[in-house]
Design a protein around this nucleic acid. Structure first.
Lengths: 137, 137
DNA sequence: ACTTGACCTGGAGTCAGCTCCAAGTTGTAT
DNA sequence: ATACAACTTGGAGCTGACTCCAGGTCAAGT
């Protein structure tokens, strides 16, 4: 067979611990993995990609439950045939943008306090600019 | 007294629910609040700022425990007198930069799949570029 | 006097996301 | 034959961050 990985190898390649991979299968985030005669899990390259996608989405703060619809689409599926997913991803894209804005504001804030060069930052809070005095240098 | 807020008002101004404010006090994230004769909590503007700082740091993914050293410094303290905190914040700044990079890569990836204009993205994973086919448009 | 509403305390429950464990099976090395 | 390592299952336990009581206090309004 082409490229088969044990769970250990899958863990090494994806950085996701074995236990966690099994957990993901248990909660139905990942599909039930193929098994060998001895019931051991076998993973294919596309499975590793799916796992990497999980890692990827997790970085953006997406909860595991929300990932399920995306992961159910098999590799190669055309998203345009799934308008509801298209909407979901557009929605998630907006969240990521917001997150980045927050982070940028905080960076600006830190820099303005620590180096005194960045523009005014208010930590993304509405209302009059507030500075957290303890950071003054 | 100048500007005193009830817990309810504090909650309204900061967006943090009352229960959560009490919880933060319980776990020692926020200092024990001033009380009135009737034991009700009283909050001052500086307390609201501290709460806003919590919200702010939370947005960057900092766990509550890690915030404590920062919050213990009272408003107006000079961070240069606390080199260990300076280091912590520089460290956290680096984490935020990483987070932003991850998010940017994912945005690029989404956009490249959904609009077909953005540069190549690999979801920040080492190794050979992989694309998650289901997003093809 | 009594109700109402905002607050208090301490403790229990919840949820996500793991993480660990015990007991069992299988395949390989000595 | 026997030990060992790598896996399996199902279930329990854990951490972080809340969230929800139950039962009590207090001040103001009718």
């Amino acid at each position: 067979m082409t490229d088969a990985y044990t769970i250990k190898e899958a863990a090494e390649h994806t950085g996701i611990p074995e236990e966690t991979i099994r957990y993901y299968e248990r909660i139905g985030l990942l599909p039930r993995a193929e098994r060998k005669q001895n019931r051991h899990r076998v993973y294919r390259p596309k499975d590793l990609e799916t796992m990497r996608l999980v890692t990827c989405l997790k970085k953006t703060g997406m909860p595991l439950e929300e990932m399920k619809p995306f992961l159910k689409l098999s590799v190669g599926d055309d998203i345009s045939e799934h308008p509801e997913l298209h909407d979901l991803i557009v929605e998630h894209r907006a969240k990521i943008r917001e997150q980045m804005d927050s982070l940028q504001q905080i960076l600006d804030f830190i820099d303005s306090q620590m180096i005194g060069t960045a523009p005014e930052a208010e930590c993304g809070l509405a209302g009059q600019p507030k500075r957290f005095g303890f950071l003054n240098l």
